[in-house]
Amino acid sequence: MPDPPRRQLRCALPLLCALLAAVSAPCPPRCACSQAARTVECTSRDLRAVPRGIPADTRTLVLTGNRIRLGPESLQELRNLRNLSSLVLRDNRIQDLDSRTFSGLPSLRSLDLSRNQLSVIHPEAFVVQTGSLRDLNLSRALHNPSSVVDLAASLRRGSLEALQVLDLSHNGLVLLPAGVFGGLEALQVLDLSHNALRAVPEEGLAELDQVLDRVPGAAVLLGGNPFTCSCSIQPLAAWLNRSWSLVQDAADLRCASPPALRNLTVLEAAAALPLGCPRGPGGAPRALQTSYVFLGLVLGLVGLVFLFVLYLNRRGIKKRVFGLRDACREVWEGYHFQTDSDPRGARGSAGTEA
């Protein structure tokens, strides 16, 4: 039976070997590594690709402030990191995301692509084999607002059923495409703050309702958008009254125009709008419905006046019609007379008969 000190030594040997292996694990040049946290950080190193030699057990990789292009070489380096759970690619001037760019990272849970210049996003750019992605940061990531169309397709087809946090703030979005959040079944936080939304139509509000109704406690952020507080803001105000507790920054939803309502909250501005703005039962503003009815009445009145004028002048109109008919008859008879009296026409007809 081995003595206790020898037994303790045997138990400590595996731990000592693991510690020595961790200490001797290589770190890529120009990067800082933490073996305890399994983190590799390469910040502002002017890297053009994912560095080689990243330890295979790395869980967090930070590549902020470089010029990394996600080409074949970088993708191959990423595919070697099977345990990577957090990838930070902030501020790398990335413009394109190809199909299944991150599919080789089965453990990826958090992806930060903020402060890039995305202009082309493949519909399957965010597909991860295991569907493990939970947090997607795209703040200041879109090169122009039109990129939201590509983004919408990638969110619908990206196998993001488990995504919980989506940050789309500071992207200049002017609208929410139909069905953009349709496949995000587990979304808990949606950040749409500081964009260019001037109003949210009823279709967009229906999209937000779908997000908020799926998961208990889900929340959305809409502050910092330049809302135009005209009659078109009424649907948003009514939605805020219903969903006040689910909008984390509801008090920050303020009007940017018109000048008379600037800096008022959306709810304050909705209460200050004219009486013509309340909504009718058909969904369109009542003032708009009234204007359509008034236009129809005016056109009908104009038609009646026109018919009445024709009726009053029926005799004069009849006389003018008869005069026009007689004039046309005289012109026609004169034309035939000139044709019959022309000798060349007579000779021509005689020759024809011969």
Rank of each mutant, 00 (worst) to 15 (best):
P2N: 10
C17K: 07
A18N: 01
S24I: 06
P26E: 15
C27G: 02
P28Q: 07
P29K: 14
C31A: 06
C33W: 01
A37I: 02
A37E: 10
R45H: 08
A49R: 07
T58W: 02
T60F: 01
R67E: 05
G71W: 01
S74Q: 04
S74T: 01
E77L: 00
R79C: 03
S85G: 10
L87H: 00
V88I: 11
L89S: 00
D91F: 01
D91Y: 02
D96Y: 07
S99R: 11
S103R: 13
S103N: 06
L105Y: 00
P106N: 01
S110L: 14
Q117A: 06
V120P: 01
H122F: 07
F126G: 01
T130Y: 01
L138I: 13
H143E: 14
V149F: 06
L151P: 05
L160N: 00
S169A: 09
Q188G: 12
H194I: 02
H194Q: 12
H194S: 12
A199Q: 09
A199I: 04
P201M: 06
P201L: 03
D209T: 14
D213G: 15
V220M: 02
P226I: 02
P226Q: 03
S232A: 15
P235V: 06
L236V: 11
L236I: 10
A238I: 07
A238H: 12
L246A: 13
Q248H: 07
V266S: 09
A271M: 09
G276C: 12
P281I: 06
A287D: 11
Q289M: 08
G300I: 05
L310C: 10
N313D: 10
F322M: 14
E330Y: 15
V331I: 14
D340N: 10
G345P: 00
E353T: 15
